[in-house]
C-alpha cells in the first residue's frame, strides 16, 4: 500500500495527463481550422490584389466557405472524437463578432481598404488571443506574431504591396501557425 503523499502525486500525474490530452485535442482541431482559414485568406488577399473591383465577393466567399468548412471539420472530428466543436452557438458568436467588426469599419468609421485589411486581421487575432487565455498559449503566440507583422505592413509597406504582404502575413501566418500548433 502507498501513503497519501504518493497517492496525491499519482492523482496529480493523472490530472496533468488529462490536461495535456485535452489541449492536444483542442490544438489538433484548431490547427485544421486555422490552415483552412489561412488558405482562404491567402487566396482572397491575392485575388483582391489582382482584381480589386470584385473584392467584396471574394471576402463574402471567404466567410461562406470558411463557415461551411468549419462545420465540415467539426463534423469529421465528431465522428472520431464524439465531441461537437462547431455548433450553432459558435456560429452565432462568430456572426456577432463579424457584425460588430462591420459596424466599426463601415458605420461608425469609414475605413479605407488598407485600414480594413489591417483592422480585420488584428480584430480576428484579438479573438485568437482571447481564446488562448483559456485554450493554450500557442493561440496567443500566433495572434501576437500576426498582429505585429500586420502593423509592420500597415506602417512600412507602401502602396499595392500591402495586399500580398497581408496574404503572406495573415494567410501564410495562419497556415504556418496551424502546422506549428499541430506539432505542439
Amino acid at each position: 500500500m502507498i501513503d497519501s503523499k504518493q497517492a496525491a502525486s499519482a492523482l496529480a500525474e493523472i490530472d496533468d495527463i488529462v490536461q495535456r490530452v485535452r489541449q492536444s485535442r483542442i490544438y489538433d482541431l484548431a490547427s485544421q481550422m486555422m490552415i483552412m482559414w489561412g488558405v482562404l485568406v491567402f487566396v482572397a488577399n491575392i485575388a483582391t490584389w489582382l482584381w480589386p473591383r470584385e473584392a467584396y465577393y471574394y471576402w463574402l466567399a471567404v466567410y461562406v466557405l470558411g463557415i461551411a468548412g468549419s462545420f465540415a471539420i467539426s463534423a469529421a472530428n465528431q465522428a472520431s472524437t464524439g465531441v461537437r466543436s462547431f455548433d450553432m452557438r459558435v456560429l452565432l458568436a462568430f456572426l456577432m463578432f463579424v457584425a460588430f467588426g462591420f459596424l466599426c469599419a463601415h458605420v461608425l468609421g469609414h475605413f479605407t481598404p488598407r485600414q480594413q485589411g489591417a483592422f480585420w486581421t488584428i480584430y480576428f487575432m484579438l479573438f485568437y488571443a482571447l481564446a488562448g487565455l483559456w485554450f493554450g498559449t500557442a493561440f496567443v503566440v500566433i495572434a501576437l506574431a500576426i498582429t505585429a507583422l500586420t502593423l509592420v505592413g500597415y506602417f512600412f509597406v507602401t502602396g499595392d504591396a500591402f495586399l500580398p504582404w497581408m496574404a503572406v502575413v495573415n494567410g501564410g501566418g495562419l497556415i504556418v501557425g496551424g502546422l506549428w500548433m499541430r506539432r505542439s
Binding site: 500525474e13 495527463i17 488529462v18 495535456r20 490530452v21 472520431s80 464524439g82
Partner: peptide
C-alpha cells in the same frame, strides 16, 4: 499515464495513435 490519457477521451472516441501517446 497511458490509462489516464486513454480515459480522458470520450467513450465514443477512436483512441489515441501510438505516436500521440508517446508524445503525451
Amino acid at each position: 499515464k497511458i490509462m489516464a490519457a486513454l480515459n480522458a477521451l470520450p467513450t465514443t472516441a477512436a483512441g489515441l495513435e501510438f505516436s500521440r501517446l508517446k508524445k503525451l
